[in-house]
Write a protein that binds this DNA or RNA. Structure first.
Lengths: 205, 205
DNA sequence: AAAGTAATCTACTCATAGTAAGCTACTTGT
DNA sequence: ACAAGTAGCTTACTATGAGTAGATTACTTT
């Protein structure tokens, strides 16, 4: 189980290439995302991640501070990607229904195509430590805001509170349906979008 | 920080009452639910829970097997309570819209009145270890089934897949809105219900 | 080539999940 | 009443994994 690297004694050992901080950080993030997504936060060990990168543990702490910090960095990147994807889809739509449709579809496609990032986000409350969770809620707040903002242009008659409520509800519905699709892979992102449209579009137009 | 019990040397020490397994289990569950809900799974320590119960750690393992096992027992109880609450509310409703309304309201009231149980369920994917998560998804499946079943009686024209999709979406929306209400305590359960009804009722009738 | 610095390592500490092995109070058969 | 059995309980351990102190080595700069 233990993969000795024997840096000191080896004859054929490569002398461990040195990389710039930025490069190493990207490399670590890639490995960490994979490990967190497959094993889960708790079962993932810093030693394991370090080994896979081919680096010693203190480097992870040097760059990310803590296990929480490392997860948080992964989450932030994933969340940004998701936000970008949906925001981009919101660009070219002429009416409210079309807009909703495009965003939903973009979301479901994202959860298809970036399975690892999505697995991470889906389990985001994995950690529960107060500092992380509040940070996460802040990030999530952005998504709600974006959604509410988009809806306001379509339905300026609705109250601020109602818009927020709708945004929360729709995002929650999306997340659950994405998890549902993991259990039923035969359901395409178009079908999922259609189901959700059937449920909420009448209430929005 | 360490509260020594000094059982061996004390003069005024109560000799640690012996309880039946069933009673002790209930007592442990109550403490564990509180600790898990407030500190979170990760930060909760078995030693701490044992101390608060006034018991030694091996007893927790004797009765619940592992930390996961203890959390799972808490979750199962909480989930059953929630399921009972909503199922009871489904009893006396004459039409589909009324039914949906009553269930939603029951859910939001539950998350008000059983804050601890709800905090636990809300963070249920806290653990991520594969065995626990699959167990949890199974429990959750019951709720989806119940919801889908209720909707089928109201809308027998919809396909099985669509009913499931609606059930998942509505449950996801509920969960998110309950979390939203934690941030905005001024929003009553009636208001939350009304918002959600406004969003989904048109799509269901 | 000397000095400086950024990347890296080895070798620890400490907290906590989980366990082995035995002790003790209550129950039950005779 | 008392011996035997058992269910509840404890002390004292191991093992793993997060996090850290301090030294070291490879590039960069002058």
């Amino acid at each position: 189980m233990k993969v000795e690297r024997t840096v000191t004694s080896g004859t054929t050992d490569a002398p461990r290439k040195r990389l710039s901080r930025a490069e190493r950080e990207r490399q670590i993030l890639a490995v960490a995302e994979e490990v967190f997504a497959t094993r889960g936060y708790q079962a993932a060990s810093m030693d394991d991640i370090a080994d896979r990168v081919g680096l010693s543990k203190p480097m992870l702490y040097e760059y990310f501070g803590s296990k929480d910090g490392l997860l948080l960095a992964c989450l932030e990147r994933a969340k940004r990607e998701l936000l970008d994807s949906t925001a981009a889809a919101a660009g070219d739509a002429d009416n409210a229904e079309q807009l909703l449709h495009d965003c939903l579809l973009a979301f479901f496609r994202f959860s298809d195509e970036h399975k690892q990032a999505w697995a991470l986000l889906r389990n985001e409350s994995a950690v529960l430590s107060v500092p992380i969770n509040s940070e996460l809620e802040a990030i999530r707040g952005q998504q709600v805001e974006l959604t509410a903002e988009l809806m306001r242009t379509a339905r300026p008659d609705l109250s601020q509170q109602r818009l927020e409520a709708f945004a929360e509800a729709i995002i929650g519905a999306c997340e659950r349906m994405a998890m549902w699709r993991e259990r039923r892979p035969e359901i395409t992102s178009d079908q999922a979008t259609e189901h959700l449209m059937a449920l909420v579009a009448p209430g929005l137009t």
